[in-house]
Design a protein around this nucleic acid. Sequence first.
RNA 1: GCGCCUGUAGCUCAGUUGGAUAGAGCAACGGACUUCUAAUCCGUAGGCCGCAGGUUCGAAUCCUGCCAGGCGUACCA
Length: 554
Amino acid sequence: MKQKIKNLIINAAGRAHQKGDLPSADIPEVEVEEPRAEAHGDFSTNIALVMASIQKMAPRKIADAIIAHLQDPQELIAKTEIAGPGFINFFVHPTAWHPVLREILDADTAYGAADIGQGQKFQVEFVSSNPTGPLHVGHGRGAAVGDAVANILAFCGYAVQKEYYINDSGRQIRTLGRSVFLRYRELSGQKVEFPAECYQGAYIRDLAADIKTQKGDGLLGQPEEDAIMECARFAADKILDGIRDDLKLFGVEFDCWFSEQSLYDGGRVDEILKHFRKQGIIYEKEGALWFKTSDFGDEKDRVVVKANGETTYFASDIAYHQDKYDRGFERVVDVWGADHHGYIPRMKAAIEACGHRRGQFDVILVQLVNLLRAGEPMAMSTRAGEFETLRDVINEVGRDAARFIFLTRHYESTLDFDLEIAKQKTNDNPVYYVQYVHARIASIMRKGTEQGADEISWNDQAVAHITEPEEIDLIKALARYPDILAGSAKSMEPHRVTYYLMELASAFHTYYNKHRVLTDDALVRCGRLNLILAVQKVIRNGLTLLGVSAPDRM
RNA sequence: GCGCCUGUAGCUCAGUUGGAUAGAGCAACGGACUUCUAAUCCGUAGGCCGCAGGUUCGAAUCCUGCCAGGCGUACCA
C-alpha cells in the first residue's frame, strides 16, 4: 500500500512538471510514512517540504500542484489534504485495504518475506560460550537474539548459517582439566588444596565422579599433565553435550559447531600469522609478536604470540574469521556479550588487514541481564559457582516466556529478568497476551466448525462486509508487517517484531471484545473468518521467527 | 584518565532512522463476563524526553560540552 501511494506521488510530481506547474524536473526520494496521529490520515509525505528549496516555491504551493495532478485509477484514496507547513496527508478508502487479506491468505507462511537479501551468504555466530561450565541467563539472551536475528534475515532472503564457535583450546580448558583432576584426586582420598582460580561449581565434582566411575583410579598413575589433559577433554565434551541439550531445550539449533582446535590442527593460525608477517604488519617486541592493529584504527597494538611462545586467543580468532570468509560468507555477524566491547576495534582491524571491507563484519553487542526474583537481584558468578543456569530458568518460567522476554528490549539496553514476573500471566508478561490471540482464534475456528460453518474460503462478496473501524484497523496493522520485517532485518533488531506482535494482538483483542465473528449472517461470518484467519497466520509467522510457539489452546 | 552502552509518565520500556498535539504495559482510580476463552476489553489520571548550548522550515532523534548509572580498558578467553 505504501509503495502504491509512493508511485502515485512520483507520477503526480512528474506530470506537474510536464504541465509547467513545477519549474524543476528534479524529484527527490519520496518518503511516505504512517503518521502517529489518526487525524493525519493513513499515509503522509513531506515531499513538498523537501522540494521547497529545489523548486524555489512555498511548500504548500508545491503540495497544491502535486495534488492537482494526482491520478488514482484504482480509487485507493478517499481524501487528500495539505496540513501544517506542507505535509500531504492521504486517507485511504477503507475497502481498498481488503486485498491485503487475500495477499496474506495466499502467501500464508511466506507473507511479508521481502527478498532484500537476494541470497547473499550471511553467517550469524552466537552463544559460543566456553565449554567450561553450563549456560547461564546471559547466554540465553545472546541465544534468543542471535537465533531471532538469523531467522529474520533468512526470512528476508539471506542465505543464513547459524554457527557456534567452540573454544576448545587454550588456558581456560586447561584450567577446567586441572579443576576436575583436583576433585578427582579428592574423591580418591587425597588431600588437595583447591586454588581460587579453578572452577568452583558443583558440576566440577559431578564431572570428577563421572570420570572416576569410568576410569577408576587409573589417572593417578599417569604423568600429571597427561591426566589433566584427559580430564580437560572429558569434561569439555561432557559440558558441551550439556550446552547442546540446553540449547535444544531452548529451541535453538545450530547449522555448524566450529572447533577452535581445528584451526590449529589445520595450520590456519600459522598461515595467517605468516601472511601478516609478509605484509609487514607484525613485529617483535619484548619477546612477543605484535600485530599492528593501530594501523587499522585500534588504540594500540595487540599481542598474537606471547613471549612464552603460546599464541593468544586473538590469534586464533583472526584465523577463525578469515576462515569464515574463505567459506564464502559475504557478511559475518558476531553476537557478543557487552563485556567484550573493547575487543571490537582489534577484530575490525583484523578483518580489514585480511582484506575485507568493514561493512562485511558486524558485532551485535548484547547488554547484560540482571536476574531478579520479585525485585531482588540474584548473585551471579561462574567462578564461585553461584549462578542460575539457563536450564533452571527455562524449567521455571518456560521456554516461550524466556525467549519472548529476552526480545522485549533493544539488545543495547540492559535487561532486568524477573523470574516472578516471567511466570505471571498478566500484561507485565506479554508473551501470553500474544499467544492468547492465536489460541482464541483457534477456538473460534473450532466452534465455527462445530456449528457447521463451511470451510473458510475466499469470497469477495463476504470480504466486502468487512467495514467496521476495528476491522479496518486490524487490516492496517496486518499490512504493516512486511515493512516491520524489512526494518528488523536491515537493522538486525528483532525486538521490532516483538513490539509489532504486541500491537497486532492489542488490535485483535479490541476487535474481539466489540464484535462477534460467528454471527448468523453467513456472509458477514465468512468475511470475518477470513479476517481472523489472516491475523492468526501473521501472529504465528511472527512468533515462529522469534522462536516462540503459537498454541491452539491455552 | 580514556572508550562503549544507557538516561523518555511513579515503575518497566517503545518511539517507523529529522516530522505535525511524545506512545504502550504495570501500578492508581472508575466501568464491562447468562455471549466465539475475562490470560481480555473500555475509560480517567499521569511528561522540562538527564542538563546546557548548537545545526534548520522542524530535534526525544544529528553535533559539542557537562551530569548520573552500567560495562570495559591483559603477553585472559
